Structure formats: structure tokens, C-alpha cells
Simulated scan of single mutants.
Amino acid sequence: MPPANRPTFRFAPSPTGRLHLGHALSAILNAQEAQRVAGRFLLRIENTDLTRCTPENEAGIYEDLTWLGLRWEEPVRRQSEHFADYKDALERLQALGLIYPSFLSRGEVRRRIADAEATGQRWPRDPDGVPLYPGDERGMPDAERQARMASGAPFAWRLDMHAALMRVGHPLSWTETGEGPAGETGQVQADPSLWGDVVLARKEFPASYTLAVVVDDALQGITHVVRGRDLFHATAVHRLLQTLLDLPEPTYHHHRLVLDGEGRKLSKSAGSQSLADLRAAGATPGDIRVMLGL
């Protein structure tokens, strides 16, 4: 079977810290599924944030995955080497009139929300519980936008969600072979509007995760996205961008999360025990699989 036609899976960690058991579950499931269907297993390093991603953590990713016994195709796609791809996608959306620069700081947004809620208003929030952006600049005259950008004011490129949905003009969905938080599976209806005007890039960053992931998946020929259930609802925005940019639609499989003793998902920011720590304590790759219920 030609490589372009083979089922293709990927594991795409960000080198902002060492991998933990949650990463191990996702990596192993992707590698196992690729092997089961005689497909391809790719590795992608998601390092658009050059201030938080380090070469040491990237080296740790290769070390941990090799220790687990996983093998992947070369070369590894490193996002920092492909900023032009994200710029091209952003320019395509800009040519369609679907993005705008937003200038409100986080502090200004928080004050706006606090003022509204003080009067009894309920501020809309996305599926992760984050307040939606007010969208003040959607109707800002272009001359004012250009002047503020030229002045060096910090800004983010946001998707005009209403305009994007109007352009698509039909309901969106995706094929789910895993399940969502409420057991959603099969053909799942996508509602990108729940996320509001999402950030696609910032002045200092060429692409947010939201934009980069759909561009990378398309350019790498990813046919099956196997990832944690915490990204289930975000798939709605990914499907919207795939449709707007005329990109192929993968099949999605959202798997269970690995939780700590208090029922929270493991995370680098919370200091969850890393695979390197477990290895140093004497754990074997087989022990890791037992811990993961594999």
C-alpha cells in the first residue's frame, strides 16, 4: 500500500516539560493502532512557544519514547521549522475576511467580565470554562487596526466565529471512534460557536495550537487522531478550520485520561510525576503499561 494511502497516526507532545503517564498512554495507543492496521506512526514536536519549549525537554521526549520501546518514522516534524505553513493558512483566512486583530489585554477582559457580572449578567464561557472574548474589534475600521498594529501594540489574531460559520453555511460533525465525556461516539455534531472568537496567532507567536494542529495534521497526512478526552470539544473548532481551509478530515478517537489521586488529569504544570522519575525509581516499560491498564 503506498504510504500516502496508509492509515497514519501521530503523537504530538510539546517540550515544555518531561512526559508523564498521560503522555505515555497516548503515545502507546497511537503506536499500537498504527501497528494493528499496518499504518504509519509519526512523531511531531509542538514547539511554537520558543520561550517555554527547550532542547533539553525535547531530548527527554525522544529518550522516554525510546525507553518505552516505541519507534517512529523520520524525520520528526518540528513546528518551529514550519512557521511559513501557519503564516500561509493565516493569510488565507485573512483574505476571506475571517480574522481580525484583537487588542484587549487579559486584565481589560477580566475587568469587563467583572463589571458585567456585578450587574447580574452571566458572561458566556467555552466548554473549558474560560470566558469568551468580547469581540470589540470585529467592526474596527481597517485604518485604526493598521495604525494600532504599526504602533507596536500587542495583539492576537482571532477568528470571527460568526463570519466563519456563515461562510461554511452548513452543520459540521466528525467521526468519533472513542467517546466524549458524556459517552458521545459515532457521528458527533460539532458546535464551534461555543468557543467564541478563538485565538489563531499572536504578535509574538506564529500560530496557536488550534491553528497549528489542523495545518500539521493535513501536511503530515494524518488519517486518525488519537488523543485525550480533554480535547474532545475542541474538535469542533478543528473541524471548522479544516472546512474553511479545505483540509482533509481525519477520524478522531478520544481516549480516557490518566488521573491523579484527587481525580485531576496529569499535567506538567501541576508537577505530575514524570516517566523519567518513574524510571529512576526502578520502573520498567512493562510496569508503565501495567500502571496504564494496558
Rank of each mutant, 00 (worst) to 15 (best):
S269C: 09
P3N: 01
P285N: 08
S267C: 09
R10W: 05
R77S: 08
A38E: 10
F83A: 11
S208L: 12
T185R: 14
E262K: 07
L159N: 07
V37F: 07
A84Q: 15
T235I: 02
P15K: 03
L278I: 02
A34F: 01
L275M: 06
A207I: 12
D126I: 07
R125K: 08
D64T: 14
P7C: 12
G271D: 09
G271Y: 09
G263R: 11
S274E: 00
A147K: 14
D216A: 13
R112T: 05
G60C: 01
H23N: 13
K265Q: 07
E137D: 12
L292C: 00
N47E: 06
H162D: 06
G97P: 14
D246I: 03
P250C: 00
G107V: 12
L19C: 10
G282H: 02
L245D: 05
P248L: 12
E81D: 02
L275F: 05
A12F: 05
W157K: 04
D85T: 04
R6K: 06
R18Q: 14
K268D: 13
A34Y: 02
P250F: 00
S151I: 11
V258R: 12
D260L: 00
T243E: 13
E63V: 11
M149R: 12
H255G: 06
A147G: 11
S267K: 10
A95L: 08
L266S: 04
L200Y: 10
P192V: 12
Q189Y: 00
I288L: 13
G139M: 13
H82G: 12
A143P: 04
M140R: 06
H238E: 14
A59C: 06
R227A: 01
R18F: 13
L93A: 09
S208F: 13
L266R: 03
A24Q: 04
L96R: 12
A156W: 08
E179N: 05
L240I: 09
A27F: 00
A95V: 10
L70S: 01
E137T: 10
W67N: 02
L29T: 03
V225H: 06
E56A: 15
L231W: 02
F155V: 03
F83H: 13
S208H: 10
A89V: 14
A276Y: 10
E73G: 03
P15E: 02
Q121F: 07
A118L: 09
H253P: 00
R44K: 05
R44E: 04
T48Y: 06
G120A: 02
T48W: 04
E46L: 15
S208G: 14
T243S: 09
L70H: 03
L211P: 04
M1K: 07
G69T: 05
G221V: 04
A84V: 15
A95Q: 15
T54N: 15
H255E: 08
L50C: 07
K268I: 12
A190R: 07
A281W: 02
H20T: 11
A84H: 14
V225S: 06
T8S: 15
K268C: 15
A190K: 05
E74G: 01
A118W: 10
R256G: 02
G107D: 11
Y209V: 12
G228Q: 13
H224T: 00
D246A: 06
S269L: 11
Y252N: 08
H255M: 10
A156H: 10
S102P: 00
D49W: 04
E33V: 15
V290R: 11
H82Y: 11
L257C: 08
R125I: 07
E137G: 09
